Simulated scan of single mutants.
Amino acid sequence: MKPIQIEKATLDIPFVDANGKTQLVIEFDRTDENIKRLYASFEDLEKTKNELSVTEDGNVIDDAKDFIKDIMDPIFGEGTFDKVYALCPSVVAAVVHFYKMSMALKEELEMDDFKNFEDKYLS
Rank of each mutant, 00 (worst) to 15 (best):
A40H: 11
V54I: 14
M101C: 15
L109N: 07
L45H: 01
S53L: 04
E33P: 01
D17E: 11
K47T: 10
M111P: 06
L122T: 09
K47H: 10
D112T: 09
D66C: 08
T55C: 10
S123W: 15
K115R: 15
M1G: 13
T22P: 02
K106F: 11
M1N: 13
C88Q: 13
E108F: 11
D17V: 11
D119T: 11
L45A: 05
K2D: 05
K65S: 13
T55A: 10
I68Y: 06
V92F: 03
E110K: 11
D82R: 01
K106E: 11
K8C: 14
F76I: 01
M101D: 13
L11A: 15
K2N: 11
A9N: 09
I6A: 11
S102N: 01
L45G: 07
Q23G: 03
K36S: 05
K21C: 08
L105A: 05
T48M: 15
D12T: 05
D57C: 13
F42D: 00
Y39G: 02
V84F: 01
G79Y: 03
Y39N: 09
D62V: 05
D119A: 12
T10W: 01
D112W: 08
F98Q: 05
P14N: 15
T55P: 01
F15R: 04
T10N: 09
A94Q: 05
E110S: 06
L38W: 04
G20D: 10
E78I: 13
Y39K: 09
K36C: 06
F98V: 10
V84T: 04
I68W: 02
K47M: 13
E56G: 12
E51R: 13
M103Q: 10
E51L: 14
G79C: 07
D57G: 12
D17P: 06
Y39C: 00
K65H: 15
D66T: 07
M72R: 00
N59L: 13
M72G: 04
I71P: 00
D73E: 02
C88V: 08
P89T: 07
H97P: 00
F42P: 00
K49I: 08
K106H: 12
V95A: 07
M111Q: 09
K115T: 12
S123T: 14
D62I: 03
R30L: 02
M103W: 08
T31D: 06
L105I: 04
S102T: 03
D29K: 12
K106V: 08
D44R: 14
F15W: 14
D73T: 03
I71A: 01
L52C: 02
V96A: 10
G77Q: 00
H97C: 07
I68G: 00
G77K: 03
G20F: 02
K21P: 01
L52W: 01
V92N: 08
